[in-house]
């Protein structure tokens, strides 16, 4: 075994048609080998640990097909939002956890400590005075984490966008995954936003 390990990353396969000169039919009718196979063949000749590289590729595939779906399923079904009320939407946020809408059906349970959360629901107007505290809270949440901008104020300032003290949209401060329109959005809209986020998490590849 050598001391250093190099990993071969498959390059994206170039389009075959682009290889043929314009205005001329390609002579070879057989499809070309996928690019990464060629890489591997070459690698076997020149790189001693090509087999491991292949193994790592298989591991990656396994992670893709087996582990990631499980993690995504778990992450999707257990979103803990931060228990933080900013403004008007916070009341509808609370109503969504009330008896009529009961967001806990989807496994959404608010926690008070940002350390235990993975969803920041910005439910209200964000002012410049609270902006850096919002960023701190976001940074205190461990990865992976998501942000929902609930309501018009969080999305773009809403009716207060002209005000001197209001951040026109929380996406100026933290990356936002889902925007929910409404002033304030009804609890159904919040649940719909959460379900949309769940779909996004399910399709997540990272």
């Amino acid at each position: 075994m050598t001391g250093t390990s190099t990993t071969v990353v498959p390059k994206p396969r170039p389009p075959i048609e682009a290889a043929a000169p314009a205005g001329e039919l390609p002579m070879v009718t057989q499809p070309a080998l996928p690019f990464f196979e060629i890489e591997t063949l070459r690698a076997e000749q020149f790189i001693p640990n090509a087999k491991e590289a292949l193994g790592s590729m298989i591991a990656e595939q396994a992670q893709d097909k087996l582990i990631r779906p499980v993690f995504n399923w778990a992450g999707r079904n257990s979103l803990f939002p931060l228990h933080w009320g900013l403004a008007c939407c916070a009341i509808e946020f609370a109503a969504a956890f009330g008896a009529r809408w009961d967001a806990e059906r989807f496994g959404v349970v608010p926690r008070s400590s940002p350390r235990q959360c993975d969803l920041l629901i910005v439910n209200g107007t964000v002012t410049w005075k609270v902006a850096h505290k919002l960023i701190t809270l976001y940074e205190q949440m461990p990865e992976p984490k998501w942000v929902i901008a609930m309501g018009n104020c969080a999305t773009g300032g809403g009716p207060f966008r002209t005000a001197y003290s209001v951040v026109p949209g929380v996406d100026k401060l933290v990356p936002v995954d889902v925007y929910i329109a409404g002033c304030p959005p009804r609890p159904e809209a919040l649940l719909d936003g959460i379900l949309l986020l769940e779909r996004l998490i399910q399709e997540r590849r990272e």
Binding site: A74, R76, G107, D118, E143, P144
Partner: peptide, 9 residues
Amino acid sequence: ADGIKLFRK
């Protein structure tokens, strides 16, 4: 699901 998610964090 909660357990796996917390494991993943």
